[in-house]
């Protein structure tokens, strides 16, 4: 079988674009689980909300994409902080299933809230005119906007890594995943820190959703699919690990891109299979850390 290199590169880049979206979606979920210990079932809902907010802010004008995304991320930060303060803070001491039920309730409310505000119809926003034409890579056309998505995800990954490794707040966030009580004893304002982490995670999900709008339509049903995709990425890569989310997103994106070529009907089944295998072999994920056994 003759493999066309241009086509191969095209599939690879398409997979990379999918991976970029998945990374932005999942990294916030991972951060939130690491710091707050909460599995956020509403994470995909905020992702969906991001796309709707961009549609609303840009008023259907593709040129409004850049400043629109900035506004939407700011809204995401505020919204995340509010949700954490009002709904999550009371349930930190509760059993896990209460937290899951609470975030599932948020999923339901956001899904119908979006229907009330924007209607059930699909919404879309084309790419800005500068990016409307495809770029040619090795003789194959490739949507220019995909490159923007890939660069955006790469920039977020590097900035997030610098933030966590090189700043004091980043140090606290890493510390709070290890030992919340010790950090409190050291005088760090932990409740405010957790609000900040949740707001950051939600802002990233909102950014991820908004960034897909120039290429994909959005509908209220996106949320339940997105949150499962985010779980897969985070579980494969390792809960709480940023590089894990990046690796997980890369693997899932490429499996989908090439799985479609090999066995189109069941490419999504491959992804769930990978998730199950990783959970069996390395439950803490490919780049996650095994849980510390406390005695």
């Amino acid at each position: 079988m003759e493999l066309d290199l241009g086509f191969f590169v095209q599939q690879f880049l398409t997979g990379l674009a999918t991976a970029s979206t998945l990374f932005l979606l999942a990294v916030g979920l991972s951060l939130i689980f690491g710091a707050l210990g909460i599995v956020n079932f509403a994470h995909g809902s905020f992702y969906m909300l991001g796309a709707y907010l961009l549609y609303w802010v840009a008023r259907g004008d593709p040129e409004g994409l850049w400043w629109g995304m900035a506004v939407v991320v700011a809204i995401g930060l505020v919204l995340g902080a509010l949700v954490e303060r009002i709904f999550l803070r009371p349930v930190y001491p509760r059993p896990e299933h209460h937290q899951i039920l609470l975030t599932y309730a948020l999923l339901l409310v956001i899904e119908d809230g979006v229907k009330i505000l924007f209607g059930s119809a699909y919404k879309s926003l084309g790419p800005p005119s500068a990016l409307a034409m495809p770029v040619w890579i090795l003789g194959a056309p490739f949507p220019a906007y995909y490159l923007v998505q890939i660069l955006l995800a790469a920039a977020v990954a590097v900035l997030l890594w610098l933030f966590l490794k090189r700043t004091r707040v980043g140090l606290w966030i890493r510390a709070v995943t290890q030992d919340r009580e010790m950090l409190e004893a050291l005088g760090v304002p932990v409740p405010r820190l957790l609000t900040g982490v949740f707001a950051l995670g939600i802002a990233l999900a909102v950014l991820g959703g908004a960034a897909t709008l120039p290429m994909q339509t959005v509908s209220p049903g996106v949320a339940v699919e997105a949150v499962i995709s985010a779980f897969i990425v985070v579980v494969v890569g390792g809960l709480g690990s940023i590089w894990g989310s990046l690796l997980g997103a890369f693997l899932i994106g490429e499996i989908q891109a090439f799985g479609v070529m090999i066995w189109p009907e069941f490419s999504i089944a491959f992804v769930y299979l990978l998730m199950a295998v990783v959970l069996l072999v390395r439950p803490w994920g490919l780049l996650g850390r095994p849980p510390v056994v406390r005695t």
């Binding site: 896990e96 779980f231 009907e265 089944a269 769930y272 998730m275 199950a276 959970l279 439950p283």
Partner: peptide, 25 residues
Amino acid sequence: RTSRIYFTMLTLAFAQLLWAIVHKW
């Protein structure tokens, strides 16, 4: 064999795997 969040995620993965097969077969 697994516990807590890993059990939840593993049962979710298996069920979704079956769903994906039923959904496309």
